[in-house]
């Protein structure tokens, strides 16, 4: 453990990735506390470039872009944790069960995984979400989770397969413990680094998918998100009017959060897997 920490402290990818993610997390948590008006309120002059009073300028309606930005970052993290969490729960459950049980259970679950894997997630989501009249963040997250789990299930299944034949697992099985107990106490801890990394990837995927949905106009009906900001900017021709402060920050924030998550993941990979460290 000490050695892992030692290596971790010296891994620039891990450190840079982690600090960017934490920085944005803090901004999302604390930023809204210092904004004393709602993100969608019409507070200022219209279409004003960034200034000391409105840090990121205002929209064509006089909304404060900075307020929308910090609230949007908050919901970005929320959707990532919820959507990624649901996908993680389904994916690991399916993967563990398929890999551990084998046989017909494995056949069926693998078939199911492959079917959902081939379906393009966002397109399914568009069709499903289009029929909902009121959409909240949680509903969006659940739908995203339901469609994006397959690759995690495949990865977890492959790992479980290789662990399931180890002697200590056989021993646990012989002792008569329930399937889930064996999986939770013997198999999962031995691939914990792998699970953490899967969750990070699912988090990033959920954020990007949600941004896409929001951009098409299927975002939360009464909320703020970075994707919605992009949608509004395009809908009210921020491009043609040259209001770059309306559409550059939200996309940059998504890219920065998800990108540093990925880089953080590579760092973690190098920490857990000595083979990958720099030569």
């Amino acid at each position: 453990m000490n050695e892992t920490l030692h290596v971790a402290r010296r891994n620039p990818k891990l450190l840079i990735g982690l600090s960017v993610v934490l920085g944005f997390l803090l901004l999302g948590l604390l930023g809204p506390l210092f904004v004393d008006h709602g993100p969608n309120q019409y507070v200022g002059p219209q279409s004003e470039p960034p200034s000391a009073q409105y840090w990121l300028g205002t929209t064509t309606f006089g909304q404060d872009v900075w307020a929308q930005f910090v609230y949007g970052i908050r919901s970005t993290f929320l959707i990532g944790v919820l959507g990624g969490g649901v996908a993680f729960a389904i994916g690991t459950a399916v993967g563990f069960l398929a890999g551990y049980r084998g046989g017909i259970v494995d056949e069926i679950l693998t078939m199911l995984t492959n079917v959902v894997l081939v379906l393009p997630a966002l397109v399914v989501l568009i069709v499903a979400v289009a029929y909902l009249d009121a959409r909240g963040l949680v509903v969006q997250a659940v739908f995203i989770g339901l469609t994006t789990w397959p690759w995690a299930a495949r990865a977890v299944r492959a790992q479980t397969l290789s662990l399931a034949t180890r002697e200590y697992v056989d021993l646990a099985r012989l002792s008569g413990r329930r399937t889930w107990r064996v999986i939770i106490t013997e198999i999962a801890p031995n691939m914990s680094s792998y699970l953490v990394m899967s969750f990070i990837l699912l988090f990033g995927g959920a954020v990007l998918t949600a941004a896409g949905l929001d951009f098409i106009g299927l975002g939360p009906t009464d909320g703020v998100s970075l994707g919605l900001m992009l949608e509004n900017a395009v809908a009210w021709s921020a491009l043609q009017l040259g209001l770059w402060w309306w559409f550059v920050p939200p996309g940059a924030a998504i890219t920065a959060v998800v990108g540093s998550m990925y880089i953080l993941n590579v760092g973690l990979d190098e920490v857990f897997n000595p083979k990958l460290r720099e030569l």
């Binding site: 990818k13 990033g204 990007l208 941004a211 896409g212 951009f215 994707g227 992009l230 900017a233 395009v234 491009l239 043609q240 040259g242 770059w244 559409f247 550059v248 939200p250 996309g251 940059a252 998504i254 890219t255 920065a256 959060v257 998800v258 990108g259 998550m261 990925y262 880089i263 590579v266």
Partner: peptide
């Protein structure tokens, strides 16, 4: 190349499209 690659995969398609439309198209 590795960090650039990761940042590119993390870029929402519509955002890069917006940036290009704005910079190469409008400006």
């Amino acid at each position: 190349i590795l960090p650039i690659g990761y940042v590119l995969t993390a870029t929402p398609y519509m955002w890069l499209a917006l940036l290009m439309a704005w910079s190469l198209g409008i400006v």
